[in-house]
Design a protein around this nucleic acid. Structure first.
Lengths: 232, 232
DNA sequence: CGACGATTTGAATAGGATCAATGGGAGTGG
DNA sequence: CCACTCCCATTGATCCTATTCAAATCGTCG
């Protein structure tokens, strides 16, 4: 692993409270890998072997059952995925593949659990990270059960817009197909949903979306901080 | 708190790895309360103040937004709820009310976090508990996104049947209205879904459901251990 | 240029929601 | 004890959202 990579990883929330020697030991056992787009990293049902930390790129978490497939989440730097499976030493509940070329830190299962036992700073970080993951899924579920598809799209646009600096326009960092699945609808429906939002100033230019009347869109979308605020 | 209550609490997974003096300190600060049916325990959006452990009865976790309300989960003994909010010292994402008269242990927020710092056995239990909660919600979400309402009902019946000892019949421990909301459908639709399952041997007798042809039902439901098995 | 996949549009359908009305217990008060 | 009420559950009819199927368009890449 390159020295600047190490410095970068060291600064992640997950590791910042960790003792230096424990950190070194864990890093020695870990792999830093770069995957091309569309690479399958893990498959649901397999026993967990690594904790993954996304350093660059985008990872799609998805699940299948019954001949259907759905996108569960998109993981961006600098977040982890599949943490719960590692902690419980259980099988993965979701599969993961890269969307773009991505750089990923892979920490063997046993090393994570060893560090958990010996390093209380790390344990604290893990607890916070895991609690954050839990709350994210709960928000997702509220989103799914309490809103229509169009409301979900509107609120997602508002969220991405804010995350990208509220410049009046935003970039979708994944396919519309994937966005549709993430929001729990079909691609055809997503396309129609965009049309429905046109009167509220939503303009679609490929992967770039312009929000020309944020007030109107927010009035329609009724954002709810207990669903949409990632920081809550 | 009565001595036999203390013994009972001591045996919970969450506390069994805790040091005796830490356990005593925590219990001294905790409240053991009995609530009548339909009592509201917490409201979403409020800052977290207690970690709750259900000792007896049933608690409904629900959420509201946009004039709609949905049941997120039913918590039965001996599970905790609202753990993530306590750990992050954040506001609750869900509200909670009793379904039946229920006995609940309430541990103040600060005591949970103090014990987390000082007792590594407790920390380990918390991590496992939280990871379990996370995986439960992920399964719920797969259930919602990958199955139709009828499939969800069929698999839920199979699950309850197994949990209650596979005797050929099962008891719903909550209203059909609540079950409908939990499964993400309307009460009217639940009623129709039961009718649709009649050819597979599902007989409804008030709160008691008899499964007269489990094979047929399972063939229809296609249970998936990565969704339906609570132990995975 | 041609091929392929992604996106959009259109038409038909299905699944589920809503609205309305009825039946059925459980609890209440006379 | 019985009538009354209220809430839950069921049933029917209709509406609406979203899916499916089909086809056209667009853009990208070789």
């Amino acid at each position: 692993m390159r020295p600047d990579d190490i410095l970068e990883v060291r600064k992640l929330h997950l590791f910042e409270n960790m003792q230096e020697d424990n950190f070194q030991a864990m890093l020695n056992a870990a792999y830093l890998q770069t995957f091309p787009a569309q690479a399958e990293l893990i498959r649901e049902g397999d026993p967990s072997d690594f904790l993954y930390v996304v350093l660059e790129g985008t990872i799609e978490l998805f699940a299948q059952s019954n001949d259907h497939e759905t996108t569960m989440a998109m993981v961006r730097p600098f977040n982890t995925f599949i943490l719960a499976a590692v902690l419980k030493d259980a099988v993965y509940l979701m599969s993961a593949r890269t969307v773009q070329r991505s750089r990923v830190l892979m920490i063997p299962n046993s090393n994570v659990r060893a560090a958990l036992e010996t390093d209380s700073g790390f344990t604290r970080s893990i607890v916070i990270e895991l609690a954050g993951c839990y709350r994210a899924v709960v928000k997702d579920q509220k989103n799914l059960k309490l809103r229509t598809t169009i409301e979900r799209l509107a609120n997602r646009l508002i969220r991405y817009h804010k995350e990208q600096g509220s410049t009046g326009s935003l970039e979708l960092f994944h396919d519309k197909k994937t966005l549709a699945s993430l929001l729990g609808m079909t691609p055809e429906n997503l396309s129609r949903a965009f049309n429905t939002l046109k009167p509220y100033g939503v303009r679609v230019l490929g992967n770039r979306i312009e929000l020309e009347d944020l007030d109107a869109l927010e009035t329609f979308a009724k954002p709810d901080r207990l669903i949409d605020d990632r920081s809550v």
